[in-house]
Amino acid sequence: MTEQSYNFAYLDEQTKRMIRRAILKGLAIPGYQVPFASREMPTPYGWGTGGVQVSAATLTPDDTFKVIDQGADDTTNAVSIRRFFERTAGVAVTTKTSEATVIQTRHRIPEEPLTEGQILVYQVPIPEPLRFLEPRETETRKMHALEEYGLMHVKLYEDIARHGHIATSYAYPVKVEERYVMDPSPIPKFDNPKLEMAAIQLFGAGREQRIYAIPPYTGIVSLDFEDHPFEPTKADHPCGLCGAADSYLDEVITDDAGGRMFVCSDTDYCESRRAQGHRGKDAA
């Protein structure tokens, strides 16, 4: 049931064209942050307005849409965004990763490998990987233009000197096709290797007015040192519900006596495995 008072997918066609141009430019220059005139959306800045605008410009009436937040389809913000497009675009929605043509995500990449023809839309809070080293936009844009990324490695050097390890666990910076250093949004570094995929990846930062993109099969390297290589990490347990040993896990506190269990953060993955008969040690 679409609300007739708004255009398909809420945004007017002019705005969608402007966003599509930014997306195409982003795909043409992988990893480059394209400025775009982000619109005020009916959801707050910081709650996925960039992702929502990219989805709005990407969706067609034939699409099947999935929204995840922290890997889950039923977290409140995911529900809110899914409903927004049900109301304004009337598109089919799903929780099945394999059935979706457009997936909007916050902080995770689905466990199930994505395929050609799918689009993964990320919500990005701070698109600038250099921001916490250099607060000025005018300076960071120059650093990207001149490929001056020494400072990024200084930060990793300092981590190792102080902690013995690179102390970045999410939003771990990557280099795209040997050119731009890019923030993959706050996904856990466990997800970084999945950034090389068959699907199109689009990143939208509404408040910061930036869109960037990774075309299918683009080379993505997580920054590291030869002698301190990048390591994707996760909790060293299988999922308590489905027994998966290869998925990213949430830690759930089960009582106030130190009891806890680990479960898949990707709810669709976990449910599919359980439907296939897999069981973890905490499953009934």
């Binding site: 300092e158 040192f225 030869e226």
Partner: peptide
């Protein structure tokens, strides 16, 4: 860079021109 260690200060120029081995830089 006053907020970066002495080692990081000296290493920055090396990393800026492509040095990627922590042990060698150090």
């Amino acid at each position: 860079r006053m907020g970066v260690s002495a080692g990081g200060n000296v290493g920055e120029r090396l990393m800026a021109v492509g040095a990627r081995n922590y042990g060698d830089i150090r």
